Simulated scan of single mutants.
Amino acid sequence: MTSTILKPSAHPLSAYIDILESGKALLPESTENLVEVVGILKSYAIVLDAYSRNLNYIAEKQFLVIFPFFKYFNGEVTRPKLIRYLWHDRINFEYAEYVMRTMLWHGGGGLDSYLDSPEFSSLAQKAIAAKLKGNFFMQGLHKVFPNFLPEQIRMLSYYSGLGQFWRVMSDLFINLSDRYEAGQIKSIADVVDFILAGLVGAASLPITYSVKIGDRDCDIIPASANLTFLADVAVPYVEAIFFRGTAFFGVVSYNAQAHQIPEEQKDFGYGALFADPLPIGGAGIPPTQLMQDMRHFLPDYLQEIYRSSCRGEDDVRVQICQSFQKSMFCVTTATILGLAPHPMNTSDPEEKKANRTYLEGWMDRFSNSRLDWANQPTNRSCQLFPER
């Protein structure tokens, strides 16, 4: 009889492979970790609700509007809302667009492949013809610059795809918070299991996109494209946002001769699992906008943790970023387990080997991430050096 016991992995991060093979999360179990993860995901869910509504509004109602001055207003332009906007007393929808453009730039997955297809090109041209009907000036510009409007529609497709993805994730994280407050979520393992079940349940949801132009409905991403939530949007999102990301202006040099940015996109490591939280709060750092938005919706129990820290709420955006990274390691754990070729509790030797190879591939990506930091005991005291 063939033994089902594999030799220990020789990978430098083998300890985390052991953790995943045992079905545990990449974030250690602790009461404080649980409170931080659930609390920050509740705040994140509220922000994602606003982001997704705006992205979908732009995709559907601002279709090929060349100068969309009021795209962040969701169709409700009033004097009080305009004053709040100018005073910056609002949700930072610019961050949602930053994420969308990051996904667009990195590409990958079924959505990216479809947008390079002849079917998309044909549907885009039909939508352009309908939108420009009677507009001789824009028709002339389209003839002179034939690639401009199709590229805009390509970008709008990412608005819609990301909006649909975040709609699902917002509802999932709100349900997680409700379960926690009802006493049904009691551990980090419960969090991962809940998120995994949510991702699996939504995996085959169709991703479609159409716009109404006059009295005509124009398909951009029809159901026949067979794009789905998990494979075609969620996985490229994890790749582009959790791992690759983009280098923040002012933090590293964009000068090619400085060689501070990898030459290949696949080598980028600026995503949410890699980012140093300390620059958060600095001008030009996009996640600052997300942390600022989440700050407005923190549950009381999470605010109390931040208040009791060394600096109180003076560095609350940094603390929010740290909690957010912890939560993303939980989401990443759920993603890894959900995409594994076989269940982690399999007893088949060949399946175990396949899982081991799969996990080692993931660990290659984590080598410069904040994974080691996330697995250190939380220390919120101001004592930098131990007493002698």
Rank of each mutant, 00 (worst) to 15 (best):
S14V: 05
S22H: 14
K24S: 15
L26K: 12
N33G: 10
L34N: 03
I40V: 15
L41V: 07
S43A: 15
Y44K: 10
I46W: 11
A50E: 15
R53E: 14
N54I: 00
F63T: 13
F67H: 08
P68C: 01
F70L: 04
K71A: 02
F73H: 13
R79M: 00
P80C: 00
I91G: 08
E94R: 01
Y95V: 06
V99F: 07
M103N: 09
L111E: 03
D112G: 05
E119P: 12
F120D: 12
F120G: 11
A124P: 12
Q125D: 15
K126T: 11
A130W: 10
G134V: 09
G134C: 12
F136G: 02
Q139I: 09
L141G: 07
L141K: 14
H142L: 08
P146M: 00
P146D: 01
N147Y: 01
N147K: 01
P150W: 03
Q152E: 00
R154F: 04
M155Y: 01
W166S: 07
W166T: 04
M169S: 15
D171Q: 14
D171L: 11
L176Y: 02
S177A: 14
D178S: 10
Y180M: 05
E181Q: 12
E181C: 05
K186N: 15
K186W: 01
I188K: 09
A189M: 10
V191Q: 05
V191M: 09
V192C: 08
V192W: 07
D193C: 02
F194T: 08
V200S: 05
A202T: 03
S204L: 07
L205E: 09
P206V: 03
T208M: 06
Y209T: 02
S210C: 07
D215H: 09
D217M: 06
P222A: 06
A225W: 09
F229W: 10
D232L: 05
P236T: 06
P236C: 12
T246L: 15
F248S: 12
V251R: 14
S253I: 06
S253P: 13
N255P: 03
Q257C: 04
Q257T: 13
A258S: 13
Q260M: 15
E264N: 13
K266Q: 13
Y270Q: 02
F274H: 04
I280H: 02
G281R: 06
I285M: 10
P286F: 00
Q289D: 11
M294H: 00
M294V: 08
L298N: 11
D300Q: 13
D300L: 04
L302I: 12
I305H: 11
Y306M: 15
R307Q: 15
G312Q: 03
E313V: 00
R317E: 05
V318M: 08
I320A: 03
I320M: 14
F324K: 04
F324H: 11
K326Q: 15
K326P: 11
S327F: 02
C330P: 11
V331L: 09
T332Y: 05
H342P: 03
N345S: 09
S347Y: 00
S347K: 03
P349Y: 04
N355P: 10
R356L: 13
T357Q: 11
L359V: 07
E360T: 08
M363C: 04
D364Y: 03
W373E: 11
R380P: 02
R380L: 15
